[in-house]
Design a protein around this nucleic acid. Structure first.
Lengths: 207, 207
DNA sequence: CGCTAATCTAGAACAAGTTCCTACTTCGGC
DNA sequence: GCCGAAGTAGGAACTTGTTCTAGATTAGCG
C-alpha cells in the first residue's frame, strides 16, 4: 500500500549517508522538532537549529536546502511514525468512510498534543513553492496511504474512491490550517472531516 | 447575502480615511497587484511597493502592518470585484452543485489569467498566522458568499448545505494551492471541485 | 600509510521584512 | 489664521533566512 518515495523520478535513492552523517541528520531533525514544539514556525530559526544539533550553519543547509525543506522533512518523519502506529491499531468501524474519519480524528488528536509542532509543519507544507514539490508530494502520498489503509476494502481503490480521497485530503489540510490559525474550533474540524468522509462511504457503496 | 466585514467585532468600522489617504491606499494596492502579477509572492517587496506607490516605507507599514496583511487585503479587493462580476452573470445550470462548480471554474479561469498574482495572494492567505485572522476570515466570508449566491435556493442554507459549502471551500483552497505549486493539473483541479460539489447537490436534494 | 576529493566548521556577508527615529506636513478644532 | 495632534518622508538599524569563503577534518582508495 505504501509508495516508495525513493523509487520516483528525480532522486533515485539519495547516495547513502555514512553513520556520522545519518547521526547528524537525526540530530538536526530532533532539534527541529524540539524548537518547533516549543514555539512553532517562528521558533525554528536556522541558526538555533544548527547550534542545538551541533552542526555548522552551512552543513545544515547542505542537508536541508531551506527552512521549508527542513520542516517538510520533519513532517515526513512524523507521518512515518504515525503510519506505523496506525498499522498496529487499525480503525474498527464497519463503514469505510467512518474508518477514515476515525483515522483522521486520531491523527488530529496526536497533532493536538504538540500544536506548535503541527503549526510549524503545516505552515511549511502550504507555504512550500515549486522547489519543494517533490518533498511535498511525498508527504501527500504518505497521507493518502494512511487514508487508503483506512478505506481498506481489500481491493485497489476505484476511480470514484480515489476522487473522494482527494477531497478528503484537501479538506483535511485546509481545515487543519483553519484550526491552527485559530479560526475554527475542534468540533468544527471534526464536522468538516465527517462531511468530507461521507463522500467515501458513498463511493464505496455506490461503486 | 454579502456580509459587511466592517460590521464585525474587532474594528467597528475603521476611522474613515481622508481623500488623500484613500488615494494612498489605492496606490499601494495597485502597486502590489502590479508587482505580484509580474513575479508572484517574492516579487512583492515592501521597499518596492513603497517606491512604486510613492509612499514612505513607514507609511506603507502604517496602512498594512505586514506583507501578509497587504496581500490578504489585495485578495479582498479582487474578490469584491469578482463577486460583482458574478452577480451580473450568474451561473445557469439547473443543479445547485453544478452552479457552484461552474462559479468556481469561472473564478479559476480568472485566476489563470494572472497566475503570479493568484500565487501571491494564496500563499499569503495560507501562510497567515493569528495576527491576520480577522482579515483572513473576511476573505473566507467573501468566498462563502460567492458560493452561497451560486447555490441560490431562494431560502437560507440548511445545516447540511452549510456543511457541504465548508468542504467545498476547503477543497477549493487546497486544490488551488496544489495547482499553483505545480503539483496538480488544471483538469485535476476541475475534477476535485466537481467531486466536492456533489456534496452540495446532495445536500440540496436530500434536505 | 599517504593522497585527494568531499565534507565540515566558523564566521562574514548579503537580502528582504520589520522597526525605529527625526524632521517636515497635513488635519481638525479654536 | 493658529496650535497641538496625527500622519508622512527619508533613511538608519535590526532580524532572520540564505549564501559564500577559507581553513580544518574525514572518507575512500591505491
Amino acid at each position: 500500500m505504501t509508495v516508495d518515495a525513493s523509487a520516483t523520478a528525480g532522486s533515485p535513492t539519495p547516495p547513502a549517508l555514512t553513520e556520522r552523517q545519518e547521526a547528524r541528520r537525526q540530530r538536526i531533525l530532533r532539534a527541529t522538532q524540539q524548537l518547533a514544539a516549543r514555539g512553532g514556525f517562528d521558533a525554528v530559526q536556522m541558526r538555533e537549529v544548527a547550534e542545538l544539533s551541533e552542526v555548522a550553519l552551512g552543513t545544515l543547509y547542505r542537508y536541508f536546502p531551506s527552512k521549508i525543506h527542513l520542516l517538510v522533512a520533519t513532517m515526513q518523519d512524523q507521518l512515518e511514525q504515525l503510519h506505523d502506529q496506525l498499522r498496529r491499531k487499525p480503525p474498527v468501524s464497519p463503514d469505510p468512510g467512518e474508518r477514515v474519519a476515525e483515522t483522521l480524528m486520531r491523527t488530529f488528536k496526536a497533532l493536538q498534543r504538540e500544536p506548535h509542532l503541527a503549526e510549524a509543519m503545516m505552515r511549511a507544507l502550504t507555504f512550500a513553492d515549486r522547489s519543494v514539490s517533490a518533498e511535498v508530494d511525498s508527504v501527500n502520498r504518505l497521507i493518502t496511504d494512511v487514508i487508503a489503509d483506512a478505506v481498506h476494502t481489500g481491493r485497489p481503490l476505484t476511480r470514484s474512491e480515489l476522487a473522494a480521497v482527494r477531497v478528503v485530503t484537501h479538506t483535511w489540510h485546509s481545515t487543519l490550517i483553519t484550526w491552527l490559525s485559530g479560526r475554527a474550533s475542534i468540533s468544527q474540524v471534526k464536522a468538516d472531516i465527517d462531511t468530507a468522509c461521507t463522500l467515501i462511504s458513498q463511493a464505496a457503496t455506490t461503486e
